[in-house]
Computed example of a mutant assay.
Amino acid sequence: MLQLPKSPPKVNMRVSLEEAYEQCRQITAKYSKTFYLGTRLMSEAKQRAIWAIYVWCRRTDELVDGPEARHTTPETLDEWESRLESLFSGRAMDDFDVALVDTLERFPLEIEPFRDMIEGQRMDLYRNRYQTFEELKLYCYRVAGTVGLMSEAVMGVDPALQTAPWILEEGVRPTEEAVALGIANQLTNILRDVGEDTRRGRIYLPLDELALFDYTEADLFDGVVDDRWRALMKFQIQRARKYYATAERGIAALSPDARWPVWAATILYSKILDAIERNGYDVFRQRAYVPGWRKAMCLPVAWIRAQAM
Rank of each mutant, 00 (worst) to 15 (best):
E248P: 02
D116R: 13
V55W: 09
Q121C: 14
I50V: 11
T163N: 08
D94R: 00
E152K: 15
E18S: 09
R40T: 13
C57T: 07
M155C: 15
G156Q: 12
V143T: 07
S16I: 04
L104A: 03
E169M: 12
E22A: 08
N12W: 02
L37K: 06
F88A: 13
L273F: 07
V147N: 03
Q236T: 11
P300F: 10
L77G: 05
D257G: 03
R122S: 02
V225M: 03
T246D: 12
R127P: 03
G182E: 10
P9N: 10
T60I: 06
A258H: 03
L273S: 09
D102H: 14
V290F: 05
D124F: 09
L181I: 15
E209V: 08
E112K: 15
W303H: 09
A302F: 07
S86A: 11
Y36E: 07
W51T: 10
D97S: 01
G182N: 08
P174E: 00
E18H: 13
V98H: 02
M93A: 12
L87G: 05
L254P: 01
A45R: 11
I27E: 04
D124V: 03
E68Q: 12
E85I: 00
A164D: 09
I50L: 04
L212T: 00
R40H: 10
A306S: 14
G156D: 08
W303V: 00
Y126E: 13
C140N: 10
V101W: 12
T132N: 04
E169I: 01
P67M: 05
I267C: 05
G223T: 03
T60P: 09
R48S: 06
A153K: 09
R287A: 03
L17E: 11
T34M: 01
E105G: 15
D61S: 08
W56Q: 04
R14Q: 09
R259H: 03
D257S: 07
I304M: 04
T28H: 12
L268W: 00
N128V: 06
P174W: 11
A69F: 00
A160P: 01
E152H: 15
T72I: 02
I190S: 09
S16D: 04
F35S: 11
S82M: 04
E134C: 07
D222C: 11
C57R: 10
Q307H: 13
L254T: 06
F88S: 08
E277V: 10
M42F: 14
I53N: 14
L299C: 01
V301E: 06
V225H: 03
